[in-house]
């Protein structure tokens, strides 16, 4: 089974545990939402799942095998959209995509038409030959999404892929994720936009202070927490402060009434 499985993942940085005993499975055709406040360990989990960061304990399995046994083979079947759009600023968007395609050993006859089509579909045609340094965040994000899709991967990890995207591109992305899942791809989707996760994901994992505090379908979580929306669920599971009160405090500080 081509499922991505995290088994008791732990990550410590200089003695501080940022991910603690995290286990879950993402099955083919499934979109799993990965939620949590800033600093809860979402990005670190994503990086451990891709093998970009070593685990302090635990293992990642794909297709029943530990990815550490053959990381290159796993990455051939992986697409990853990172949170931070770090790209080579001196390259054009097209050159970056060509580099990725060539590193992935795709034949020129395959990747050239694919890149052309992707660039057109993502609305980057006018900027394809401009240097990435002049791209907006959304444009960089589109380049990252294309790079993750070029080799038709079996498993996709999206780490806040909608950040910086315009409304149209965000809508396209939402439909794209569903279409990819329908084609049997296993997808982990990390985002802060609860509405999107609620509409898009079959299952939601909520992370708090490095630990999983919930792992279930959105409907089950709603029933369990007797809440009307995912936002309410998230509020009950994770938030330790009242957001409305915090907002009022911020306004007070801004106006000098603190």
């Amino acid at each position: 089974m081509q499922a991505l499985e995290a088994r008791h993942l732990v990550k410590r940085f200089f003695g501080v545990t940022v991910v603690n005993d995290v286990s879950f499975i993402v099955r083919p055709g499934e979109v799993v939402g990965y939620l949590g406040p800033n600093g809860s360990g979402k990005t670190t989990t994503g990086r451990m799942l891709t093998g970009l960061v070593d685990t302090s304990a635990g293992q990642v399995h794909f297709d029943g095998r530990n990815i550490a046994d053959d990381l290159v083979a796993f990455r051939r079947r992986l697409g990853y959209v990172p949170e931070e759009p770090h790209l080579y600023g001196f390259q054009s968007g097209r050159e970056y995509l060509e580099l990725v395609a060539r590193l992935r050993e795709l034949p020129r006859t395959t990747f050239e038409p694919k890149i052309d089509a992707f660039i057109e579909l993502f609305g980057l045609a006018d900027a394809a030959h401009q240097s990435i340094a002049s791209y907006s965040k959304g444009m960089k994000q589109k380049v990252l999404i294309i790079a993750a899709l070029l080799h038709d991967p079996d498993v996709l990890i999206f780490d806040e892929p909608d950040s910086g995207l315009d409304v149209t591109a965000a809508l396209v992305l939402r439909h794209l994720v569903r279409a990819l899942a329908a084609r049997g791809k296993a997808i982990l989707y990390s985002s802060h936009v609860l509405d999107v996760v609620e509409k898009l994901c079959d299952r939601v994992i909520v992370l708090h202070q490095g630990r999983i505090v919930a792992d279930d379908s959105v409907s089950n979580l709603r029933q369990l927490m007797t809440s009307g929306s995912l936002e309410e669920v998230f509020r009950q599971l994770v938030l330790r402060t009242d957001p409305e009160q915090t907002a009022r405090d911020i306004v007070a500080v801004m106006a000098g009434h603190a």
Binding site: T50, G51, L52, V72, A73, R75, L78, Y80, P82, H86, L87, Y88, Y96, L99, V100, L103, R104, E105, A147
Partner: peptide, 9 residues
Amino acid sequence: WTFHLAWPG
């Protein structure tokens, strides 16, 4: 990271 992920081995 681009190379790390796309590295052909």
